[in-house]
Simulated assay, not measured.
Amino acid sequence: MTLRVLIVDDEPLARARLRVLLGDCREPAALPTGEADSAAQALALAQHQPFDVALVDIHMPGADGLQLAAALRDVPHPPLVVFVTAHAEHAVQAFEVEAVDYLTKPVRRERLQAALQKVERLAQLQPAREADSAPDWLVIAERGRTVRVPLAEVLYLKAELKYITVRTAEASHLLDGSLSQLEDKYPERFLRIHRNALVARHAIRALVRHHDAEEGEGWAVRLAGVDEVLMVSRRQVAAVREALGE
């Protein structure tokens, strides 16, 4: 068995050292298949890619490793967590979030290998998850905390710069992720209306003529729960009409 590893540390040198150590591990073998320098980036990766284990630093900007470990329980394929940190004082808290092991820096290969052996044993005991299972919420790390936003409350998802705006009737959140991956994962829940936007099918109320400062005359959708309208690309107008039953 080759373990798929997510390395989470805000220090590039620390991530590089773990990559080298993992390359020296043989029983079991371990392959770094993802890296993140923050809890938000790690959550975005884990939402869309399966990992067997996450090697997580505790002290990071924004949400810390303990908050990340708790949030990782809610991703589609929760990885087991091994903390790798320079600080020994968080060991009790680490095991409260069900960490498999707690390694202090500088990490020795023998100690990392022992932790991976624990992961391998536990992974073999865990029941297999459905390949296409998807949670009914989005896990978002923001402003030093982790929130769980139910998909039933999401009205639209809009790509803006490197983030996705997740809009509910009550609030807006920023998610680090891919709009296309969310579209593929929840095709029954969200409809693509533009290259930069998905809308909740249940929230679509009307297709209206609209003038946009950037795109000119065109079509837009009105959604329940928000006052703004969202532009619809010409190629998606037919899909919106179909969703409205026209």
Score class of each variant (00 low, 15 high):
Arg241Gly: 05
Tyr186Trp: 15
Leu174Glu: 09
Arg129Cys: 03
Ala239Phe: 06
Arg235Ala: 13
Glu214Ile: 13
Val119His: 02
Gln93Lys: 13
Gly245Ser: 07
Arg148His: 15
Pro187Asn: 06
Pro78Gly: 08
Leu175Phe: 15
Gly144Tyr: 12
Gly177Val: 08
Arg234Ala: 14
Arg195Gln: 14
Leu18Thr: 08
Glu98Phe: 13
Ala197Lys: 03
Glu214Gln: 14
Ala69Leu: 06
Ala197Ser: 14
Glu96Phe: 05
Ile204Cys: 06
Arg192Val: 06
Leu68Ile: 09
Gln49Arg: 13
Leu207Arg: 06
Glu160Arg: 11
Lys105Asn: 01
Tyr186Met: 08
Ala16Thr: 12
Leu174Tyr: 14
Glu153Lys: 11
Pro127Arg: 11
Glu89Lys: 03
Val5Thr: 11
Thr168Cys: 04
Arg209Lys: 13
Ala71Glu: 10
Ala14Ser: 15
Thr33Val: 15
Ala220His: 02
Ala63Asp: 03
Val20Ile: 15
Gly245Leu: 09
Pro78Cys: 07
Ala30Lys: 12
Leu66Thr: 08
His48Ala: 15
Pro187Met: 04
Leu191Glu: 05
Ile140Asp: 03
Glu11Tyr: 03
Ala159Arg: 13
Asp176Ala: 11
Arg111Lys: 14
Val166Asn: 04
Ala30Tyr: 11
Lys185Gln: 15
Ile204Ala: 07
Asp24Ala: 15
Arg108Ala: 15
Arg129Asn: 02
